[in-house]
């Protein structure tokens, strides 16, 4: 019924915006009791470290400061279906094993540069001669990575910090002005 929403969603898909789900816990680093999915303390620590690598503390708050790890867990627990949860957990375990095997350490014990390199290798795998086959689902590790990244980014861009300090979300705009010069928008351009 709301055509505007329909059209907006359509446009968002075209523009390639990533709209992924989100939920927030109390303490990003502490163990969260989950209802539907089994992610133990080690798994939760790993997710927190991946989230912090994705949105690190810089001059501005990072994932852990904003309790995003707990949010990621809440979303996996509440908003993923059973199959999605199983694939996610399988990916998490495969990722843990791979890191242990290749680096002899846990992900969180690696330095920032190494952690970023590991994640970027998943996000942008080196181009191989074999063309990627269509319709093959992403491997579990890739799935795990995008799950954490999607929820972390969603939680970050919908956090109070982001929506009040980085951008200004207006609950009550009180205006609709057309023929508005883009120069007057206070956009931070690339």
């Amino acid at each position: 019924m709301n055509r505007r929403t329909v059209i907006k969603n359509l446009a968002l898909v075209i523009s390639g915006a990533v709209l992924l789900p989100s939920c927030v816990g109390k303490d990003g680093s502490s163990y969260v009791q989950l209802k539907h999915v089994n992610i133990d303390e080690d798994g939760q620590r790993l997710i927190a470290d991946v989230a912090e690598t994705i949105i690190p503390k810089t001059t501005t708050p990072g994932a852990k400061d904003l309790n995003l790890p707990a949010f990621v867990l809440l979303m996996i627990d509440d908003c993923y279906d059973k199959k999605g949860q199983e694939v996610f957990v399988a990916g998490m375990k495969a990722f843990t094993a791979k890191i242990k095997k290749e680096h002899g350490k846990e992900f969180g014990d690696l330095d920032t540069k190494t952690r970023e390199t590991i994640l970027m290798a998943i996000e942008k795998p080196p181009v191989t001669k074999n063309k990627p086959q269509k319709n093959t689902p992403p491997d579990p590790i890739t799935n795990f990575y995008w799950g954490v990244k999607g929820q972390t980014v969603f939680g970050y861009t919908n956090s109070q910090y982001f929506m009040t300090k980085e951008i200004v979300y207006e609950l009550v705009p009180g205006r609709y002005v057309v023929h508005y010069p883009i120069s007057k928008l206070k956009l931070k351009t690339a």
């Binding site: 329909v6 980014v153 861009t157 980085e166």
Partner: peptide, 23 residues
């Protein structure tokens, strides 16, 4: 939305206005 770390944080805030989408 690409990448991780400080560059991602920047990418989530900055950006040019896209074209008009119509529907």
């Amino acid at each position: 939305y690409e990448g991780v770390g400080a560059s991602l944080k920047e990418g989530l805030v900055k950006g040019d206005l896209g074209p008009w989408y119509v529907g």
